[in-house]
Design a protein around this nucleic acid. Structure first.
Lengths: 338, 338
DNA sequence: TTGTAAGCGTTATCAC
DNA sequence: GTGATAACGCTTACAA
């Protein structure tokens, strides 16, 4: 079954290929009758315009690369990424763009891979998720003038097209609310040091405490990988060695691990120890105890990021902007306010 | 910064475009000296061969579409998909293929979308995950002679290229082992009816019981969506109305919901009630109690599926085969044997 | 309103 | 060993 091309259709319809092309793009200056005839033939022959040929002449692929900035396995295991992708995929489909998943074992390879997709012209732009502190990729993209949108924040390049929530403020506000509720001894189960949001949230916590003449004992901060095991160990370190009545975990999965560790150590949550997470993954509202958390609208962030990128791609006068999405504290069982 | 093409390189290196092309493909009949010269120029000019142009002439895109057969949001939230994708992505990268994610709100749209990617020539083949019972997509693919590999099983089309585990056998063996361990009253928290594996596992359960002159009371089977809420409700229905000492959940997430529901109802797990899941998601080994489960090597399945597809794509004499991967029972805390 | 022809950036076939 | 040239399937001036 050979592919039918525009020429085949043209011959069959007894018109020129250009006419067929114009029918495809629904050009206004084609007579109704030829349009109908050509469309009928296209249908009959099962013709589909070749996307590759089209891309070649248009110099646009209508596809967008997705970079996770983290080994894909781990990345995908985290609901954060599922949420973002969900948002991205929805808009991509609606606007008729394809999504190219770039994946690699390690961060370095992955971003080289993503860059390559751009250089070989396979994608028109990139959406970057959860950037690390060391953002060479952004540097490269900027240098080559490649369109991209970052979900998160770059330390080196503060004003680039991006969508993010204000992690600093979210953490700051959370702590204020906790202090008002009477909590005194804070501890933090932070994410990986390499991520920008880790630093931002930490700063928010520290500054909020300072604003109330309190401080965060450095021994009560533990950085951890995004694995359950690592999180458990870190939670154990904090809980078995230090007095604390409120543990702030920078991700729900970490919070979940903390709850388990706390209960295993004999703490009753939330009575003796309040635990709060970040993100509001669907799962955590069903746990026992359900997790109090700072909700980050990740699906929404994905939608906005790709919408921005598409706008940049289609409107050359638009160069992107910074969108900051607000967060919300969801009170559940693992930590009670007031 | 305009893209540099093969012609630019040719001009600069004072050779013809064909020579440059031959250097790119490392053709044996090009002198070492020209190769070096051309390579140097390519480097210097920052030349990257255009993938689109290449695809057009080669009539191959070196990209593969991924179909989830399920709203992407939900799909991605399930670790099953993350695992499969992890395997697929690893091999794709290694073999230099790109992955195109097809997504849509509903199943029907999604498979139309996937088919379209093939028809417009944007991908060379498809990997299908978790097929439904109603598999029109497969029918279409077969009819159009499009290359694809299914992860799972099709009821209508038993012998197509696919990789799967033997769900029937896995369930059968599990029940046998449970019976040997003294369990008597079985109940099943099954997945969605539309999925082939649900039926297969159920049949395995029923047949194993029959083989021991036992039977499964239909009221002790509950079908449920893959959401925590739905699973909890179904588990509640079973546990609050019927006597059971072993609950088999057809997915770890469902098992996890069952454990919580059981404990909320006052059952002690595993003493009064054993609960076993399927898949062995990373998370569930860390729960309290940790989940006994039937491990399905999903990463491996992803790897094999895409490897098979690539082989089909590159070797026209190979038309795929059926690979059945074996499973393994992992004993943890939620259900004890003997 | 439609056709002709050039061109998008490659590779492949033939020459030399 | 290397260079012309055609072709891949489409779009788009420019003509008519």
């Amino acid at each position: 079954m050979k592919k039918v091309t525009i020429k085949d259709v043209a011959k069959e319809a007894e018109v020129s290929p250009s006419t067929v092309s114009r029918v495809i793009s629904d050009s206004p200056n084609i007579s109704k009758s030829t349009k109908e005839k050509v469309r009928f033939i296209m249908d009959e022959m099962g013709y589909y315009p070749n996307a590759i040929a089209r891309s070649l002449v248009k110099q646009k692929t209508r596809s967008i690369g997705l970079v996770m900035s983290r080994p894909t396995d781990r990345a995908l295991a985290n609901p954060f990424f599922s949420g973002v992708i969900q948002g991205i995929a929805a808009v991509a489909q609606e606007k008729n763009y394809s999504l190219l998943l770039t994946a690699a074992d390690n961060y370095e390879d992955e971003y080289q891979e993503a860059l390559k997709q751009l250089k070989v012209g396979r994608v028109d732009g990139l959406v970057l998720l959860a950037s690390r502190i060391n953002d060479d990729l952004i540097k490269q993209l900027l240098k080559n003038n490649f369109p991209f949108v970052l979900i998160g924040r770059s330390q080196e390049f503060p004003s680039i097209p991006r969508v993010d929530n204000d992690n600093y403020k979210a953490a700051f506000d959370l702590i204020e609310k906790l202090i008002k509720s009477g909590y005194k001894d804070f501890s933090v189960l932070a994410g990986h040091k390499d991520y920008v949001f880790t630093g931002d949230r930490l700063k928010g916590v520290i500054d909020a405490l300072k604003a109330h003449s309190m401080n965060l004992d450095p021994v009560k901060i533990e950085f951890t990988d995004f694995t359950f095991k690592s999180a458990e160990q870190s939670a154990y370190k904090i809980l078995s060695n230090h007095k604390t009545d409120a543990l702030i975990a920078f991700d729900d999965l970490l919070g979940m691990a903390a709850v388990q560790t706390a209960e295993a150590l004999g703490f009753s949550v939330p009575d003796q120890l309040g635990i709060v997470g970040f993100n509001d993954h669907t799962l955590v509202s069903y746990l026992k105890p359900s997790l109090t958390t700072v909700k980050i609208p990740i699906v929404d962030m994905g939608e906005r990021a790709i919408s921005m990128l598409i706008k940049m791609l289609e409107d050359s006068s638009y160069t992107g902007e910074e969108e900051i999405i607000s967060t919300e504290i969801i009170e559940r069982e693992s930590l009670k306010f007031i």
